[in-house]
């Protein structure tokens, strides 16, 4: 275990040093990747661990981004306070939406979150005076002097925080409850797990994380637009999680980083790139529902079995 901790710290340190030798273009890719890691990991907390597919995750990021941006521009809040307020508002909305539809489970949650995200979209477009509509709200940065490096570290710290919380949640007692809720609601309920409470909890925490990610992202782009809470964004987050591996801890991290980098490559194909992206996601989701992590694991198991067969004396 100790060795693992060392390795993990070394890996994080290596990642933290990575942008120092890179140009601004590559630094930008890394920052955006970290944003998607937060989004995908927190969506996975909900979809992968409690089996609730929310289509409003991008909308919660939008709430965080808009709340923080509006407070900073209209009320003169310090952007950091704005980020906190945005995260809190996303948490509150997450709690309310969660209460509204979690009792009904499954598809109801998916469709209600979809409706929620549509309402948000229309409100943002119509309340032009406050949100600047499709034009986007120009917001101040988090640091006085715009520099990619400082944003990278801000995003890295936030990402580690989000990942840490998720890790604790799914590996603590509560994680067991989570899985139980996903696998068999009735059985979980009979074991004394309060199904609704676990779900509302997961939904609220995951919305809060999306709100945090969205608020930071808005202050990084210096512009908050309806693109942040859009269905396209939701599609990206979903694909990243599914391709990486739904319901595994590292899956969304792998998915988010590799797909963000991949999308930089295929961008060159202009109008084909979204189609290509979609086809990859569809193929993986259909033929390897556990994603890249699943592929890796089954390959490993097969190899283990092969080893076990060739040397029957070794007892695994």
């Amino acid at each position: 275990m100790n060795r693992n901790k060392w390795l993990l710290s070394a890996a994080i340190l290596a990642f933290a040093l990575l942008p120092l030798g890179l140009g601004t273009y590559h630094q930008h890719i890394l920052i955006v990747s970290l944003f998607y890691v937060m989004m995908a990991a927190s969506w996975n907390l909900l979809a992968g661990y409690t089996g609730q597919v929310s289509f409003g995750h991008a909308a919660f990021a939008g709430i965080g981004a808009y709340a923080s941006g509006i407070l900073a521009t209209k009320a003169g809040f310090n952007p950091w306070l704005g980020v906190m307020a945005g995260t809190m508002l996303a948490t509150a909305f997450g709690f309310l939406v969660g209460l509204l539809c979690l009792k009904m489970g499954g598809i109801y949650l998916s469709l209600t979150t979809l409706a929620f995200s549509s309402i948000l979209h229309i409100v943002i477009n119509n309340e032009y005076e406050i949100t600047r509509g499709t034009m986007g709200l120009q917001v101040p940065g988090l640091v006085a002097e715009y520099s990619k490096i400082s944003y990278f570290y801000i995003f890295l710290v936030a990402t580690l925080l989000v990942l840490g919380v998720i890790y604790r949640m799914v590996h603590a007692n509560m994680g067991l409850n989570f899985r139980a809720v996903q696998n068999d609601e009735r059985a979980a309920a009979s074991l004394g797990v309060n199904v609704v409470r676990v779900r509302v909890m997961a939904f609220t925490v995951s919305s809060a994380m999306a709100g945090l990610a969205g608020a930071l992202y808005g202050h990084y782009l210096l512009l908050v637009t309806p693109q942040i809470p859009s269905l396209d964004q939701q599609f990206l987050v979903l694909s990243m999680t599914v391709i990486g591996g739904l319901g595994s801890f590292v899956g969304p991290i792998i998915g988010a980083i590799s797909l963000e980098i991949l999308s930089e490559y295929i961008r060159a194909y202009g109008e084909y790139h979204v189609l290509f992206f979609g086809l990859v996601a569809l193929t993986v989701a259909r033929f390897a529902p556990k994603g890249l992590v699943g592929i890796y694991q089954s390959a490993r198991e097969r190899r283990m079995q092969a080893v076990a067969k060739t040397s029957p004396a070794v007892n695994r």
């Binding site: 390795l7 993990l8 890996a11 590292v250």
Partner: peptide, 8 residues
């Protein structure tokens, strides 16, 4: 851990 390192 190994996966994380590979990933990075």
């Amino acid at each position: 851990c190994r996966m994380l390192i590979c990933l990075m």
